[in-house]
Deep mutational scan, measured.
Amino acid sequence: MATDAALRRLLRLHRTEIAVAVDSAFPLLHALADHDVVPEDKFQETLHLKEKEGCPQAFHALLSWLLTQDSTAILDFWRVLFKDYNLERYGRLQPILDSFPKDVDLSQPRKGRKPPAVPKALVPPPRLPTKRKASEEARAAAPAALTPRGTASPGSQLKAKPPKKPESSAEQQRLPLGNGIQTMSASVQRAVAMSSGDVPGARGAVEGILIQQVFESGGSKKCIQVGGEFYTPSKFEDSGSGKNKARSSSGPKPLVRAKGAQGAAPGGGEARLGQQGSVPAPLALPSDPQLHQKNEDECAVCRDGGELICCDGCPRAFHLACLSPPLREIPSGTWRCSSCLQATVQEVQPRAEEPRPQEPPVETPLPPGLRSAGEEVRGPPGEPLAGMDTTLVYKHLPAPPSAAPLPGLDSSALHPLLCVGPEGQQNLAPGARCGVCGDGTDVLRCTHCAAAFHWRCHFPAGTSRPGTGLRCRSCSGDVTPAPVEGVLAPSPARLAPGPAKDDTASHEPALH
């Protein structure tokens, strides 16, 4: 009773807030009518008042009428009001819900409408889902798969039609296919003929059939049928067999079959498995989609049935006599038709004709302190090069084509190399640097090759510096006499390219 009084008091307290929050009759008014909170006449009256005075006034009048009803109607109103779709449509209802007392429970059932309790003993237990329907569909599909699609060729003596089998029958139906081979029951999904010589313990000319048996419980189990008994694959494991010639990621696949039913060829011909030897223990289905393919039931050349050999690369099948050149017997292992072999060759040939990528240039590290003349020119003028003790990398590039010797140069053309002071002394051009340390401070000019250098860098042994005729380390061993002091540049003949010694390969005349 306390809860009923509290709900009535809360409705009177929030009546105006609810009326202002509800700006549309749908969905709240319609939901109240659906849950029998508002009768039909009051529903029509509220809609009429909404058209006349507006939605807030109409709902305020409806809530005032609701306060005169019993506690069950008020409880049902609060339940409908706080439904998710009403809270989404009328956003101003959320503060009312947040301020609702926590001790007021809106989930209690309506009085007088409590459903009768059902004894637990009368409640049926839930049924577990079964796979009976899938099993029945598999039974119905198996006879259809064994139905012949056409008439065999005159040369083929193997013609068999499976008798119709009602689904209610649980007995196995067997077809006489000759040579002791028996087909599987209607619940078998796949059958492959297997030679009895590969099964340990088999006697006589009995041949087993590799099947997948579907049981009534819905589970499946792969086994071997020899005669009327089934054997699990673990009985046929043979770890010492060295003649297993397995197909790549293979499961067994029928390579020879008669049109209309699988079996042995007439005249004692023995149908073979995809792999010879003992049956392997793992009978998992292969991951290669080509091995799941269903080959055609007629020859791809003459479009006739009979004894066919199936290609492992495509769905086509052929007569042995229709092949070019014809085959006398079934080859062992994987067999592919000429079209598949030709496609494989065409895929391999473009790969062989692809040009080989060019090898990157060989990189040879230079000892610290040495650099090529090109690196000396590329440096920024007026700045010493940083990191001189790091190992430089010199790339061996292809030799350029031989060019004509340089033409003779006048001494005026070499004027930018040297600057003559007032006393006739050779001065260095701006930006000249030593080729060893890279520093341009207090550098000297070689009178023979006009290269800038430090005496301490080229002659670290402490050799005394002569007063005139300074030469760098590369030119100090040259027998050519030094030019007379005061000459602007060496003779043009000295600039012609010539053979250089091994220790002077990195010091070429550089223009500054």
Rank of each mutant, 00 (worst) to 15 (best):
Glu167Asp: 11
Gly242Phe: 13
Ala141Val: 10
Ala25Pro: 07
Gly112Asn: 06
Gly251Phe: 13
Asp41Cys: 14
Thr232Pro: 08
Tyr231Phe: 11
Ala160Phe: 11
Glu88Thr: 15
Leu10Ser: 01
Arg110Ala: 14
Arg139Glu: 09
Leu146Phe: 08
Glu137Arg: 04
Gly269Thr: 15
Gly112Gln: 14
Lys161Pro: 06
Glu136Ser: 09
Arg127Gly: 04
Tyr85Val: 03
Arg139Ala: 01
Glu136Met: 04
Phe82Gln: 04
Ala186Tyr: 01
Arg127Tyr: 04
Pro252Tyr: 06
Val118Glu: 11
Lys42Asn: 10
Val38Phe: 01
Asp36Tyr: 04
Ala191Met: 06
Gly180Ile: 03
Arg272Leu: 10
Ile211Leu: 04
Pro266Gly: 08
Thr16Met: 03
Gln94Leu: 06
Leu62His: 00
Ala134Glu: 00
Tyr90Trp: 01
Ala261Arg: 06
Cys223Arg: 07
Gly218Ile: 12
Arg8Ser: 03
Lys253Thr: 04
Asn179Phe: 04
Gly227Thr: 00
Met184Gly: 10
Pro154Val: 04
Gly201Ile: 13
Ala138Tyr: 14
Asp98His: 14
Pro109Met: 15
Ser135Cys: 07
Ala140Tyr: 14
Pro95Thr: 14
Pro154Trp: 12
Phe100Lys: 07
Arg8Thr: 01
Thr151Ile: 14
Leu122Cys: 12
Val123Gly: 14
Lys111Ile: 14
Pro163Phe: 09
Ala145Asn: 03
Gly54Asn: 00
Ser239Phe: 11
Val20Glu: 00
Trp78Ser: 03
Glu229Gln: 12
Gly240His: 02
Val199Ser: 06
Lys164Pro: 15
Arg9Thr: 03
Pro95Leu: 14
Ile181Trp: 12
Leu62Asn: 03
Arg132Gly: 02
Leu255Thr: 04
Val199Thr: 04
Lys50Ala: 00
Ala61Ile: 00
Arg15Tyr: 00
Ala261Glu: 11
Glu40Asp: 04
Ile224Glu: 10
Lys159Asn: 14
Thr183Gln: 04
Pro129Cys: 08
Val256His: 08
Leu62Gln: 02
Gly201Leu: 14
Pro176Trp: 11
Ala138Leu: 13
Lys243Leu: 15
Gln189Ser: 13
Ala258Pro: 13
Pro124Ile: 15
Gln157Ser: 11
Glu17Asp: 14
Pro129Ala: 06
Ser241Gly: 08
Pro125His: 13
Ala31Leu: 05
Ala138Val: 11
Pro200Ala: 06
Ala121Tyr: 15
Ala258Thr: 09
Ser187His: 13
Gly267Pro: 08
Arg272Met: 14
Glu207Thr: 03
Val256Ile: 05
Thr68Asn: 05
Gly54Met: 06
Gly251Trp: 14
Glu51Tyr: 00
Asp23Ile: 02
Gly178Asp: 05
Lys222Tyr: 00
Glu207Leu: 02
Lys259Arg: 09
Arg139Met: 10
Gly260Ile: 14
Ala186His: 08
Pro266Lys: 12
Glu17Trp: 00
Gly263Gln: 00
Glu136Phe: 05
Ala246Val: 12
Leu47Arg: 00
Leu177Pro: 04
Ala202Met: 13
Ala193Ser: 08
Ser195Gly: 08
Trp65Leu: 03
Arg113Gln: 12
His35Pro: 02
Gln157Arg: 05
Ala25Ile: 09
Gln173Phe: 15
Arg89Ala: 07
Lys161Tyr: 06
Ala2Val: 01
Gly208Ser: 06
Arg139Asp: 05
Lys165Cys: 04
Thr68Tyr: 04
Gly263Thr: 11
Gln94Pro: 02
Val38Cys: 04
Leu158Gln: 08
Leu67Val: 05
Gly219Thr: 10
Asn179Gln: 00
Gly155Asp: 03
Ala61His: 13
Pro162Ala: 07
Asp84Lys: 01
Asp103Phe: 07
Asp84Glu: 07
Cys55Tyr: 05
His14Met: 00
